[in-house]
Write a protein that binds this DNA or RNA. Structure first.
Lengths: 175, 175
DNA sequence: TTATATTTTCAATATTTTCTGAAAATTCAA
DNA sequence: TTGAATTTTCAGAAAATATTGAAAATATAA
């Protein structure tokens, strides 16, 4: 005999949030499981253990462990200890601005900086070449490189700021 | 007997650019082939045919066709005709700012808007619930939703602007 | 028409990424 | 120490994604 417990509206919304946030993970360059764990910790009032994460998301121990570890590495989660308990518990970062900054920095590091490096090299290696074609290419690399570099530094500045300092400015400029 | 032609410095740099730009494609949510074609068209002085793309990147006709088509859809390439020639040629968008805006818009559409929708729904469905836990969850969804919505509208404004209007402001604010 | 050039489609295949589960390593209380 | 609890690792399996290649569709010239 199988019993289906009625889910409360709240539980339903929470599950939706976790499922959909996870689905979005891919688009955000974050894998699905990590995004789901992030969602779970975000709405969890108490820190959760690896076992709780495994159970709630129905994932393996290895998967849970690896992703929790990586989240701690990013700063999206912190590990906390409960006295009298050997288990490790994890608490999600809940400040929206901090989450944004962490993700922005990580993406800058993984996406923008390598691009910038490629462009710099290509520009450097073709400096001073005489043919028209080479000059065009060199110019393109310089231009792209400058653009990417500027973008990078803007992102860096934003991610290093307080939300209360950036948002008002941004709103003023763009609303 | 195999003959290896000496590659010029320029050719070497161009191949590097194509290869590395392609490798970065993944990180950018753009597939490798599309990024490589983009790089190729970007530095190609003349529009290129499907066959030229295939040959240069050593990819299949189906792959070349599909990705060129998609690039035209995004606005990253335009199809041009040469009189007296039945083939279709493709020209890459070369304006850095325009490329940036196209990618920003596409990512907003694919990443930010779905996220915003999820959050709105979760907030809506838990409006007015009485328990403390529900109130916390509702508040989190509202807060996240507002943040994402604001980010989205800022990105929209930027992508709709002229480079010459945005960049000076940005530089002033963040340099 | 008909023949030929070109483009599109898509089932099959290959590649990449993610996940599992169990064994190994580590930690800690007794 | 020993042994139970917990965490980590990683080879192989599964799932997701990208690519091929050839047949079908379409377009054009003669």
């Amino acid at each position: 005999m199988s019993v289906t417990l009625q889910k409360s509206v709240l539980e339903q919304a929470q599950e939706d949030f976790i499922a959909q946030w996870g689905a979005l993970g891919t688009a955000w360059g974050i894998n699905r499981t990590m995004a789901q764990i992030h969602a779970l910790l975000l709405i969890s009032p108490e820190p959760a253990s690896t076992d709780e994460v495994m159970e709630h998301l129905e994932i393996s121990r290895g998967n849970a462990n690896t992703n929790l570890r990586e989240m701690v590495g990013w700063g999206l989660a912190r590990s906390v200890l409960k006295r009298g308990d050997r288990k490790e518990y994890f608490e999600g970062e809940k400040d929206v601005w901090k989450i944004f900054c962490i993700i922005a920095r990580e993406r800058k590091r993984r996406e923008i900086e390598p691009a910038s490096l490629v462009l710099k090299n290509c520009a450097e290696n073709t400096r001073g070449l005489a043919t028209a074609e080479a000059k065009v290419f060199h110019r393109q690399m310089v231009e792209l490189g400058e653009f990417v570099g500027l973008t990078s530094s803007i992102l860096e500045k934003i991610a290093a700021s307080e939300q209360s300092k950036v948002m008002p400015k941004a709103i003023k400029l763009f609303s």
